[in-house]
Computed example of a mutant assay.
Amino acid sequence: MLLAQDGAGGASFMPILMIGLLFGVMYFMMIRPQQKRRREAEQMQSSIGPGDEVVTIGGLYGIVASVDDETVMLEVAPGVHARYARPAIARVVQKTPADDVPAAESTTSDEVPTKD
């Protein structure tokens, strides 16, 4: 009789171990990758700058005209601007190089436009 009681006490530890193992697997398979994707999206949205071509979560392509703390002004067509919240930017299609500023396309005094 004492032998049967000792064996039953060890079996009650197994379900607790299985539940702990299940939570561990769920953390590494679901929660941790989701946190990584969220950090990458936040980093991408914070690094957006003027001249970058982006896509919104609604599928609208545009070029970033200006950036604010919470909003991004997109030029969706020549002369047409739309304001979006930063989290509405899904991805950056083309990044503008840091030394290439779109407004800096002016001619210097050495360059003289010629007519052909």
Rank of each mutant, 00 (worst) to 15 (best):
V72P: 10
Q45V: 06
M44G: 09
L60Y: 03
G62H: 10
H81G: 02
E75A: 09
E75F: 09
E53A: 06
E40W: 00
V72C: 07
M44W: 03
S47K: 03
E42V: 09
V76S: 13
D69K: 04
G58M: 12
R38V: 06
I48E: 00
M73W: 09
R37V: 03
V72E: 03
L60E: 05
G51I: 13
D69C: 03
G62S: 13
V80T: 08
S47T: 10
I57K: 14
R37Y: 04
G59F: 05
T56H: 02
D52W: 06
S47D: 05
G79Q: 11
D52L: 05
M73I: 13
E40M: 04
Y61I: 07
S66D: 07
D69T: 08
D68Y: 00
Q43F: 03
V64K: 02
D52G: 14
G79F: 07
P50Y: 00
L74H: 09
T71L: 05
G59A: 04
E40Q: 10
V55Y: 06
R39E: 09
A41H: 03
S47W: 00
V80I: 06
P50D: 04
P50T: 14
G62Q: 12
A77Q: 12
T71Y: 04
R38H: 06
A77F: 04
V80M: 03
P78R: 05
T56E: 02
R39L: 13
I63K: 13
E42K: 05
V55L: 11
E40C: 01
P78F: 02
E53N: 08
D68L: 00
S66W: 00
H81A: 03
A77M: 10
Y61N: 12
I57N: 13
A65R: 15
Y61T: 11
G49A: 15
R37C: 02
A41D: 07
V67I: 14
M73N: 14
A77L: 11
S66V: 02
V55C: 05
L74F: 10
G49R: 15
L74S: 09
Y61A: 07
I63D: 07
Q45F: 04
D52M: 08
E70T: 11
D69P: 10
T71D: 09
Y61L: 12
S47I: 01
T56K: 02
A41F: 00
V55K: 08
V54P: 11
E40N: 04
D52I: 10
L74A: 13
Q45A: 10
G51L: 12
T71H: 06
I63R: 14
P78N: 08
E75C: 12
R37W: 01
I57S: 07
I57D: 14
I48C: 00
S66N: 10
A65H: 15
D52S: 11
G51P: 15
R37Q: 15
Q43L: 13
R37T: 06
R39H: 08
